[in-house]
Nucleic acid binder design. Structure first.
Lengths: 189, 189
DNA sequence: AAAGTTTCCGAACATGGTGTTCGAATATTC
DNA sequence: GAATATTCGAACACCATGTTCGGAAACTTT
């Protein structure tokens, strides 16, 4: 009872078409018709598999989700020192450096970022289901890490291009674990 | 050469209608027609003043901007000990607790949040124009503080309602200045 | 390889929101 | 009160969404 080949072909064609389009165009400017043309798929077929463009995006990101999950299990098993989930994430993003649109500021990249945020938050919760968070509420800690990761990635892609993934990740880790020098912000905070 | 009364009346009616609708309905689901009905304004008139729904929202935020800047400068004048810019910001937001829930997520929330981010980043830079940031790039530090503030506020309004502004601000300060307990995230970061 | 099943296609259709146009009616300013 | 500016409302063209349908094609099963 394997999945019909045509189904896989259709879905992969749509996944690839979406990614391909995102490389050239802001997400919210992409229409379903654009995707159909790019993928060579009929309109009725699209709606037989996905309920909307957002649905397609969500499911496309399952690949990313699988990558992160794989990292968790492998790093747990092998306990490799440098291979944490967030570290792998930076490597992964490095491969997509040519997609400024996807993570760009403004409304275009918002939907993509929020979708990624959801996955990252989910993975963080999975990894630290009951670790102590001190006086800080668990939910807030998760949200903070997600937004710090998001911010660091955007900064890296837009203004820190000279840094490698390891260095960018180190900045992220420092921000989250050690915080910001007090002297730098004493007048604001 | 004062502005025609009708113009002011029309624009205020539209501003108010939008705010009123946002309290009941997600921004994305609000149509221009909804706004027209709520405001009692003709379609043609709307497009004589604003190019789109987003444009209307953007301009509505100018009021917010003035409000925030005014709050900040007045707090400087008072110069009370412990009354930092971000601390006052939490007090200010506390007054609008019933509003931003609808703005918090989705596209509309994004527009609002980005507008606030811009203002906050502007204020941070003004307050700490040349403080040392250690090994961390200044731009990244500013972005990080902005997003941490944004995240804490959102969490506070959505899930931390039991806390007062002082407590919420304390959480924000701790996150930014001391970071997150290492044990809590050792598997992720 | 043929029968039976599932999927794909593509064009048509209904729906609903967007933004524009126009002359006539109305409010405002000077 | 005359000149000017704004508003109205209805109609219009436009575009994207999501659905429907029967016939064609691909796949699976035996």
């Amino acid at each position: 009872m394997a999945v019909d080949r045509r189904v896989l072909r259709t879905r992969n064609a749509l996944y690839d078409a979406l990614v391909s389009l995102i490389r050239r165009k802001a997400y919210d400017l992409i229409t379903v018709e654009d995707i159909l043309r790019e993928a060579g798929i009929g309109r009725a077929t699209f709606y037989a598999h996905f309920t909307s463009k957002d649905d397609l995006l969500e499911r496309s990101l399952d690949r990313l989700r699988e990558l992160l999950v794989a990292t968790e299990t492998s790093s747990k098993a092998a306990a490799e020192p440098g291979q944490t989930v967030s570290r792998v994430f930076f490597d992964h993003v490095a491969q997509y450096r040519d997609i400024p649109v996807a993570l760009a500021s403004g409304r275009g990249g918002t939907i993509v970022r929020e979708a990624i945020d959801r996955i990252v938050a989910e993975r963080i919760k999975a990894v630290i289901p009951s670790e102590p968070t001190g006086p800080l509420p668990r939910e807030l800690v998760v949200l903070h890490i997600v937004s710090a990761l998001n911010t660091t990635l955007r900064w890296w892609l837009e203004r820190g291009q000279h840094l490698g993934p390891a260095e960018a990740h180190a900045l992220f880790a420092r921000l989250v674990l050690k915080g910001v020098p007090k002297e730098a912000v004493k007048l604001f905070i």
